[in-house]
Structure formats: C-alpha cells, structure tokens
Design a protein around this nucleic acid. Structure first.
Length: 428
RNA sequence: GGAGAAAUGGCAGAGUGGUCGAAUGCGGCGGUCUUGAAAACCGUUGUCCGGGAGACUGGACCGGGGGUUCGAAUCCCUCUUUCUCCGCCA
C-alpha cells in the first residue's frame, strides 16, 4: 500500500511509472487525493469541537465542586449539541476514509526506475545465464517417470491420502528432500541469516499485512472454523514478525531464513505445465527475508539475488536470471528477479525463485518502521524476500539433468546431507 | 474443554469517575563531578493522526471493539490473550 503522502507529492510520477505495469492510476489517485482532503477537513472540524468539549468538561467539573448546578446544566446541554455534531462529522469521516482505503488497496506498487516496460513474460529481461545445458542420453526421461522408476516420490499415494498436488516423498526421495532443506538453511546461516521456524497457519491480520488478503484469499487454504490460513509462503509469518514494530537503525538489516511447507490452492491445471513436480498444492521452500533502511534495500536485493544464484551453482544446475518487466511483476513488488533452472528432459526453464524488493509497500501496511540513529523520527522500513530455494522444481531439474545410465548423481555439496552419492532404480 | 484471576509506558509496578499521558523504581539519553570510568546529583525520555515554514498547537491511545457519563485507565457489555487449578494429550 502506497502512502497518501507520496501520492500527494508525486502523483504524476506514479501515474507515469504505473503505465509500465499496464495500470492506469489516474482515477484511483484522484479518488485518493479528494477523499484525503475531505478527511483532513472533517478531522479538523470534529477535533476542534472535541477540544471545546474537553475544555467545557473541566469547567463543569469545577462548577460541580462549587455546587453551581444550574450553570453546569447549561453547559451540559451545549456539549450535548456539539456531540451530536461530532457524530455527524465522524460518520462522514469514516465514509471518506473507507473510500480512500479501498482505492489505496487497489493501487499497485511503483516499479523501480530500472524495471523495463512490457506486458508479459516474453518481455522480461535476461540479465544472467549460468552453466551448460546438459546433453542427455537418448533414453533420458522426464522426472515424473524417473520418480516412479526410482520409487522416491509417489503421487498416487498423495491422491489417496489428500488429493492431487500433494506428493508423498519416501525412502531416498524423502532424504533428498530433507538434505536440500538442510543445505539451503545451512548456506543461509553462513550468509548471516537467522533461522526461524514460524507457525504455518496465520490469522487474518497477518494475511492482510503481507497482502494476501483481502484480494487473494483464493490462493490460500483456510480453516473455516478458526479463521486461519495455511501459508502460501514463509514470507507471510516472517514479515509479520515485524508488524506494528519500530526497529532501531542499528538492528538493520534484519536477515531471516526459514524452511516451511507452502500451501497453494492455485487455479486449475494448465496442461503440461502441471505435470509431476512442476506445480503442486503443497511444497517445501526455504525463504530468505530482509528488512532494511530505504537507502540500502537495492543493495540488499542484489545480495539476496547473489545468494540465490550461488545455491543453484553449488547444485550444478544451469539457470538464468530474469528481470521482470512491469507487466509480469506482482502487485506488491517494486523490482523482481526470477531465477529459472533448466530441466533438461522436459526441456523447460522452471522458476525456482523470485527475489523482490517491496520498498515500503508492505511495511506501510504492516506498520514496520525504524528509527534513525540519533533521531526521534520514525520512517517506514523496506522489506524484501526471495526463495532460496523452492524445492520441487529443483528436484525435477536435478533428477532430469543428473540422470546417467541406470543412476542419478547427487551433487557433491549435497552428499554430506544425504549420506549417499547416487540414486538407483527400484525400491531400495 | 471446565472453574477462577488478570491485561497500564522499554521493563517492573501504582492508580476504582474530573486537573491522569498517567506516581514511583529500573533501564535509555543529555549534563555536572572525574585523568578516564563507576557512584552520586540534575535534567530528559511513548506512539499515531491533524494544523503550522517553524516555535508550537489540537485530537486519539492504559489488551481489541462497543456502551454509560458533561467527563472513563477507573463503571457496564463483548471479544482476545496470559496465569492458576482440574480434565485430556505428543
């Protein structure tokens, strides 16, 4: 959510920049500015009435002490009338506030200067490519066949127990999963992130704070009786740690790393995109989050992108980094890098991480502020997050790219965590 | 799940209808003293919103929401959370 202050100051700039997200902000910003003026007028009126009432109340108190009841009664009547007036003013005020907030919630974040224009994925900018696309043997197979042959991930059992999109990992498949999580967490800790295990169910206030509510409740699983939501990403509980919080500048940057399962309802199935591990309702992800001062957030974005890239490199998977164009960015993001690994058998680039700077868009909602060193003033902090990494597509690429004749090679950095160096077909 | 108690500033903890944004202590910050530090002493120390170039000024906030009253931290209703006891339980 943008602040009204910035809309007041830079309306034209906002309208111009939001064009590259394909969004016309003229009407919304107009509504916001109008109701903002209206609000402040109403506030001034009702507060000055309240000030009069407060003064009068003290007078009445003094009169009662002196036993001057007749005069007190007169003042009481005057107060009664003012109170009615205040009630009317406040009704208009809350209406104006509702109009303003509704408009504010519909306004997306402003893309950073470096974000290219564009409508969709085709216009994203390739910023880096790493690794060689492996040439696989003729009998190479996509991961959804490999997992069956190797007996490591069972979709049918997931269907039996829960439903489609909830795979069951077993044997070395389960160990591999756990090894990846441990590896990613350990690397995060090495890079200075604090490990957190948060709740995976969150309340409405948290879902609102990071922007899943009110609009995107369709993406989350909810527990009707308790009004809780299963998290679609660790970003939700992690960033909400700092909801309604004032940090000291010296405590910044806050750097967190966290493994959680993630739950997404998503829409339906889109053909071959959803095969195997490509798109799931429940998946594992290690997430990194940073909270920084505004001056340092883009430096932090690059640092996080660097961290994510190094993880993929250590696993030896070819990948590319895309700078998302305006039209492909999320509502809340100011700048996003997507990381895609190449899954050699299905011959597809798979998104395994999305690293974003939200600037103060989330922190304004969350009321996450910080106090500058030696100052009493508070300002909104900047929030960032990224996956480091989402597991299923990493596993897909790893299985496909590393298949050899009759075995799949585990990348070396992972071996200390798996305890084995290869996967073999059949039940082990 | 049942019964009872409680929720006040960074923390501890007073305050049961008026001058209370709130005593006091601790902590924090600034100063005096000191070669330096400690101790002692003095001062200062919440957040949000509005108005103002600013000095400053108005309003709101004592777990959340609502109510009574001229006036609420204080009374009433409701929700949430915490603690104690009982039950159940990895």
């Amino acid at each position: 959510m943008l602040t009204t202050a910035i809309i007041r100051e830079k309306r034209d700039y906002i309208i111009e920049r939001l064009r590259i997200k394909g969004f016309d902000a003229t009407a919304l910003t107009g509504i916001i500015l109008n109701s903002d003026v209206e609000r402040r007028n109403l506030m001034t009126l009702s507060e000055s009435l309240q000030a009069e009432i407060n003064r009068t109340s003290k007078q009445i108190g003094a009169m009662m002490k002196e036993g001057n009841k007749a005069e007190a009664a007169e003042l009481k009547e005057a107060t009664r009338i003012k109170k009615e007036e205040i009630k009317r003013l406040e009704a208009s005020l809350s209406e104006a506030t509702a109009v303003m907030n509704e408009a504010l919630l519909k306004l997306p974040n402003i893309p950073d200067e470096t974000v290219p224009p564009g409508k969709g994925p085709d216009e994203n900018l390739l910023v880096r490519e790493w690794g060689e696309i492996p040439s696989l043997p003729d009998n190479a197979r996509p991961h959804w066949e490999l997992i069956k042959d190797y007996g490591i991930i069972d979709f049918d059992l997931g269907v039996k127990i829960t439903g489609a999109g909830f795979p069951l990992y077993r044997g070395k498949g389960a160990s591999l999963q756990r090894a990846l999580i441990s590896f990613f967490i350990a690397e995060g800790i090495k890079a200075g992130y604090e490990e957190v295990i948060p709740p995976v169910l969150v309340n409405e206030a948290s879902a609102f704070g990071t922007g899943q509510l009110p609009d995107k409740d369709g993406m989350m699983y909810g527990t009707k009786t308790d009004n809780l939501y299963l998290i679609p990403t660790a970003e939700v509980p992690l960033t909400n740690i700092y909801r309604d919080t004032i940090l000291n500048e010296g405590d910044l940057p806050v750097k967190l790393v966290s493994y959680t399962p993630c739950f997404r309802r998503e829409a339906g199935s889109w053909g071959s995109d959803v095969r195997g591990l490509n798109r799931l309702h429940q998946f594992d992800k290690v997430e990194i989050v940073q909270i920084t001062s505004p001056g340092l957030s883009y430096q932090a974005l690059e640092e996080m992108a660097g961290h994510t890239g190094r993880l993929i490199e250590k696993l030896g998977l070819p990948y590319r980094v895309m700078l998302l164009c305006g039209g492909d960015m999320s509502f809340t993001s100011a700048k996003t890098y997507d990381f895609e690994v190449y899954s050699a058998a299905q011959q597809k680039w798979l998104e395994v991480s999305s690293v974003s700077n939200f600037e103060s868009f989330q922190s304004n909602r969350l009321k996450c502020r910080y106090r500058k060193e030696g100052s009493r003033e508070t300002s909104l902090a900047h929030t960032l997050n990224g996956s480091a990494l989402a597991l299923p597509r990493i596993v897909a690429a790893l299985l496909e790219n590393n298949q050899r004749d009759g075995e799949i090679i585990i990348p070396e950095p992972l071996v200390p965590y798996t305890g084995f160096t290869t996967l073999k077909p059949g039940k082990e």
